[in-house]
């Protein structure tokens, strides 16, 4: 199939359409607005519905309704808007409905700014809204992966009846790269649980499933445990003999890949573990790391450590685990290598 040069946001939006998404309700916010713009024209072409909502609250609740009606549905946002989505996300997760969300991360708490960052890691991976739930969280590191993981997110959301999140960032969303787009999928929205009038059957009730499931605590824990067991995804680059392993996702992982190549040229044994699923965190990926590794360096575009926590949990804090931070400036590979060298020297 022919490759096409596309911007990250546009490619992600087209992938959603090809995954069978037929409803989008959302609100403009930089740097995700191209998703909204693209779908405003594209969804009507395939018989789908695009609605520009009055707020992110409006948008996420439209998605809740559309998803409950059986439709593959999506919204996207960034930073401040992602905060506003959390109420609806909690409801969608508690009703065990499939839906896909996108957070194109931007820097800073409060208003922050529109450039790339990875500061929403905790909101994305822990549980951004109230209660007990997890999102399947995927972190694309290229335009192609924005496409592939969008397709995967819709499928996995359906498979587990649990919402999925694409955690991108301004640079992945705004860059242009050649991509191969998948074929258009045909998805049947008349699922047995879909609300479309009862038509002679029992009435369907969409609410927190805790009301209907016996021993709910055990049930919901088992559901998320199954995802932890089966849905870890990662890429590793030369971790088997590495003295220091960088851990990074998204745009940071691209810089780290360069750092690994550069360090290896200099004779320094650097490796990279790139989580592709941020939840479940790819703990299994650490099993192939050199048992004599001297340390880990979590590289993330944020002012405070976030990803580092998960590295510590995955490795049991057996070796020094540091952060390479910095949201305001994109790090140079050489600076990452320097910091990694300090870990070896310790």
């Amino acid at each position: 199939m022919a490759m096409k040069l596309m911007k990250g946001n546009h490619a992600l939006a087209e992938a959603a359409v090809r995954a069978g998404c037929r409803f989008f309700g959302g609100y403009p916010i930089t740097p995700q607005t191209e998703i909204l713009e693209y779908l405003s024209a594209r969804l009507p072409e395939v018989g789908g519905v695009f609605l520009q909502a009055e707020s992110e609250l409006g948008g996420i609740n439209m998605v809740y309704g559309a998803a409950a009606a059986g439709c593959r549905a999506m919204t996207s946002s960034s930073g401040p808007g992602f905060s506003l989505l959390q109420e609806g996300i909690s409801y969608i997760a508690s009703a065990e409905l499939p839906a896909v969300f996108v957070d194109v991360q931007r820097y800073g708490s409060g208003l922050g700014d529109i450039f790339q960052a990875q500061s929403d890691y905790f909101t994305a991976t822990r549980c951004g809204g109230h209660g007990d739930y997890k999102l399947l969280v995927y972190a694309p590191a290229s335009v192609q992966e924005s496409v592939d993981l969008t397709m995967l997110a819709f499928d996995k959301a359906d498979e587990y009846r649990n919402p999925a999140l694409l955690l991108s960032d301004a640079s992945i969303a705004q860059m242009m790269e050649p991509v191969e787009l998948p074929e258009m999928r045909d998805v049947n929205f008349d699922r047995p649980w879909a609300m479309r009038g009862k038509h002679g059957g029992p009435n369907k009730r969409v609410s927190s499933t805790m009301y209907y499931i016996e021993d709910f605590d055990a049930y919901i824990k088992a559901k998320y445990d199954a995802m932890i067991a089966r849905e870890q995804r990662w890429e590793s680059v030369r971790v088997e003999d590495a003295d220091v392993v960088l851990v990074a996702y998204g745009v940071s992982a691209r810089i780290c890949k360069e750092a690994v190549a550069l360090a290896r040229e200099r004779g320094m044994r650097l490796g990279l573990l790139r989580p592709i699923s941020l939840w479940p965190f790819p703990v299994k990926g650490f099993e192939s790391v050199n048992p004599d590794v001297r340390g880990y360096l979590a590289v993330e575009l944020s002012a405070l450590p976030r990803l580092r926590d998960d590295v510590l949990l995955a490795t049991g804090q057996r070796v020094p685990t540091e952060s390479f931070l910095g949201g305001m400036h994109i790090p140079e590979p050489s600076a990452i290598i320097e910091k990694a060298a300090e870990l070896i020297a310790e």
């Binding site: 439209m62 309704g65 559309a66």
Partner: peptide, 20 residues
């Protein structure tokens, strides 16, 4: 058939259903 909307959001939820 019914759906429990979040507090205040019933019209937005209804919109999502009706549109699809």
């Amino acid at each position: 058939d019914w759906i429990q909307a979040p507090h205040g959001r019933a019209a937005a939820v209804a919109t999502g259903i009706k549109r699809v």
